[in-house]
Structure formats: C-alpha cells, structure tokens
Amino acid sequence: MILRIDPSSPEPLFQQLVNCVKSAVATGRMRPGDKLPSVRELARELVVNPNTVARAFQVLDAEGVTYSRRGSGTFVAEPRPTLRKDEGLRRYRAALDALLADALHMGLDAHDMWGGFEESLAELHFPPRGEEEREDDDE
C-alpha cells in the first residue's frame, strides 16, 4: 500500500492520510478485508506523530471506510453506500450551497452555473454499482 503525506501542504496531515486511504480504496488498490498497518507502524514509516495516524483511522472508521477490531487491527470495510447516502447528500448540499453562494457573489447567473455543473458532471467517472438501489440497512 502506498500512503504518502506532504508536510508542507496546507491540508492537515490526518486529512491527507484519510484521503489517501479513500482514494486507494476507490481505485481498487486496497480492497475490502485488506489490513492497514498499525498506528505505530504507519507513524514510524511516514515519520509522523502517532496521534495523527490514530486520528485518521478514527475518521476512516467513523466514515465507514474502515473498521477496527480491538487487538487485531484496522481493515478496509465493504462499501456500504446506502448506509451513508443521507449523510452524503446532506454534505453535498452544504458544499453546493456554499459554492453557489460564492458563484452568485461573483456575478454568475443560473444559466452559467447550470452549464458549468453539467460540464463538470460529464467528466466524472461513476463506478458500476449493482447494489446501489439496496434499501435494507442491516445495521
């Protein structure tokens, strides 16, 4: 697994680690069930404060990207999109609202905004998701 951090970036180190793992999972470089290094191993390997690694793992666990078992470590979780859809939608809307408010202040009209949105959306690559319509939450 390749996890990299850049200490001279404005982005907090724990967030960089979270993004690294998310991107590794999203691109299939890490798969459900794969074990992450321990906090101590990763802190040593990346030369960062172990609290930083521990915080990243907490965030990943909380967001359902990984799960931790006491004594055995942290593992990549099975993707559970339906579990997180409400929360994802809420955050997406919050970010969108802020973006649109900013666009309005920059003097864009609804037509400009909509056009830009469509163009950006067309550039996204959506992975096939057979279970996307699943409604039953087993947790």
Partner: peptide, 29 residues
C-alpha cells in the same frame, strides 16, 4: 524517527523548539 519512536510512543510529554517547520508538522500535535 527516534523522537517518534522513543519519546512519544511511551506516552511522554515533549516540549521542543525548532526552525524546521516540516519536521514540526510531522511530529508535533
């Protein structure tokens, strides 16, 4: 690495000064 390994892993408190901010970013909380 030694600082992280020896000093922090045992739960000690560390107070340090430095001019190398990339190092600070790595080890300091």
């Amino acid at each position: 690495e030694v600082m992280i390994d020896l000093v922090h892993a045992e739960g000690r408190t560390v107070l340090f000064t430095s001019h190398v901010l990339a190092d600070v970013e790595r080890v300091a909380d």
